[in-house]
């Protein structure tokens, strides 16, 4: 078993374990922390796939910005383990079953497809390097890139408006 495979399985176990933690943790803070771990594990996968740019972006944007935002909000609201009311048991069970079914269905579908046995290029290939992606981004995807800045702007304004409107009403 090569070091890459060892790393793959380790990261996979870490991602799944912490993902389960996310949905089972009683305290939202723990969930947020588990999610951050999941994102790190996924970033690790990106590095294994030699998609270094995405790995860094994932850490910066998700683990850094977004999750910190989440953490902020959770702490701001002072949510703790006891504050979340439990869902109806039947509904919880139904959700679990349907999610599990979906998993089974998708895995079965996967096993029937013909891409199953194709291999993935690991630790190699320069497509994921910032050099290549940057060129690609600013050559072929310049317009969407600029438009995404507009999206950010509108999201920012939206967030401000939603927050501000409330104050006026109060």
């Amino acid at each position: 078993m090569s070091i890459t495979e060892i790393l793959f399985w380790f990261l996979t176990a870490l991602a799944l374990g912490s993902a389960i933690m996310v949905i089972t943790a009683k305290s939202p803070v723990h969930s947020v922390l588990a999610l951050i771990v999941t994102f790190f594990a996924i970033s690790g996968h990106y590095i294994l796939l030699n998609a270094q740019f995405l790995a860094i972006v994932n850490i910066i944007v998700y683990a850094g910005a977004i999750m910190v935002l989440f953490l902020f909000v959770v702490m701001l609201m002072n949510l703790n383990a006891g504050s979340e009311p439990q869902k109806n048991r039947v509904l919880q069970f139904a959700g679990l079953i349907s999610g599990g079914c979906l998993f089974l269905v998708m895995i079965t579908a996967l096993m029937k497809s013909d891409v199953v046995d194709k291999t993935v290029q690991m630790n190699d290939g320069d497509h994921g390097l910032i050099n290549n992606l940057g060129k690609e981004l600013f050559k072929n995807y310049l317009v969407p890139f600029e438009i995404s800045s507009v999206l950010f702007l509108s999201a920012m304004i939206g967030a401000v408006v939603i927050g501000k409107k409330e104050k006026i009403e109060k």
Binding site: G95, L102, V105, M106, T108, A109
Partner: peptide
């Protein structure tokens, strides 16, 4: 989700 599930099953199997 159940709907998606059903559609998947119909589509795939």
């Amino acid at each position: 989700v159940i709907g998606i599930l059903v559609l998947f099953i119909v589509q795939l199997f």
